[in-house]
């Protein structure tokens, strides 16, 4: 029982990170209908922004202080929001009326560019991520260990998800975002500035990816320029699993992928844990292509 709970907690805290990342995929897909392949690399840039900001925060505040950690998180989210807007402006906006495949290939190009530029400028060797907060461990039951980092991951994720929910449901920008996702032409007709909303969507998604990057780096203490590839792909799988374009679906999908992966990692099949997300993806696309919470659309001629 304790082992089960332990795996569940590990899985949920990993899943929360996937969920934050998956939201970026699903939001961009909602407004532009394409897979932003570079999203996983924005996640990586977020972790590196935190890495370079942490010494500064330690100097400004006490080392390992809560304020410093918040500053690292906010700085990295700002950097990535700007990066996301920039990527959209330079690489995706000129292609908005092109076939989706062209944009997809461009996104792969952007992703490779961030990876290789990262390897050049951040160096390819894994770097230990600074400890932003003091470590602590709690033992609520025998054989059950919860680390403070896991609690922080879950807490920050819940806060960010609540914030996102508020923005999307209760602000003017969020309403406009939903309108664009529902029907871009109609949204433009009623005076919504498409470019602005799309930029805003990229900023929001990229900021969430940066937060996910910092949280990931806190739990898996080495970061490198290719760290975003696998979590990025798995987060995408999570978005598809939940129903792409559907925000609660992405969060649910992230949790499911995280939990399943952790449980598989605890069995004799642990060597296959990187493949399990893709196996889930293929099964879900064959059985229910619209995802768990998505709705099926019929192409009209």
């Amino acid at each position: 029982m304790a082992a089960f709970l332990q795996q569940l907690i590990n899985g949920v805290s990993l899943g929360a990170i996937y969920a934050l990342c998956a939201l970026g995929y699903t939001m961009v897909y909602g407004v532009l209908q394409f897979i932003n392949f570079a999203h996983g690399d924005v996640f990586m840039v977020g972790a590196f922004a935190g890495y370079y900001c942490a010494p500064l925060a330690a100097k400004l505040f006490q080392p390992q202080s809560a304020l410093g950690a918040v500053m690292v998180l906010l700085t990295s989210m700002t950097v990535c929001a700007a990066l996301g807007v920039l990527i959209e402006k330079l690489a995706y906006r000129p292609l908005r009326d092109h076939p989706k495949l062209t944009v997809l290939i461009t996104a792969i190009g952007v992703s490779l560019f961030l990876e290789f530029a990262g390897q050049k400028f951040f160096q390819a060797d894994p770097k230990p991520f600074p400890e932003l907060l003091p470590h602590a461990q709690y033992n609520p039951m025998p054989n059950l260990v919860i680390s403070s980092d896991q609690l922080i991951v879950m807490g920050v994720s819940v806060l960010l998800l609540a914030g996102l929910h508020f923005i999307v449901r209760h602000t003017k920008l969020g309403t406009a975002m939903r309108a664009v996702a529902f029907n871009p032409q109609a949204a433009a007709l009623v005076g919504i500035n498409l470019d602005r909303i799309i930029s805003f969507t990229f900023a929001l998604g990229s900021a969430l990816a940066a937060a996910a990057g910092i949280l990931y780096a806190m739990n898996y203490p080495a970061i490198d320029p290719l760290m975003g590839v696998m979590p990025g792909l798995k987060a995408f799988v999570a978005a598809v699993l939940g129903g792409i374009g559907n925000l609660p679906g992405a969060a649910l999908g992230g949790l499911i992928i995280g939990v399943v992966e952790t449980f598989v990692g605890g069995t004799a099949w642990s060597a296959y844990r990187d493949a399990i997300a893709f196996a889930i993806l293929i099964v879900i696309l064959l059985v229910k292509p619209a995802g768990l919470l998505g709705r099926t659309e019929v192409e009209k001629v």
């Binding site: 897979i35 989706k100 792909l233 799988v237 993806l281």
Partner: peptide, 11 residues
């Protein structure tokens, strides 16, 4: 389209 791309990537 992109779904197929991601499935083949997964394979």
């Amino acid at each position: 389209g992109d779904y197929l791309a991601i499935v083949t990537l997964g394979f």
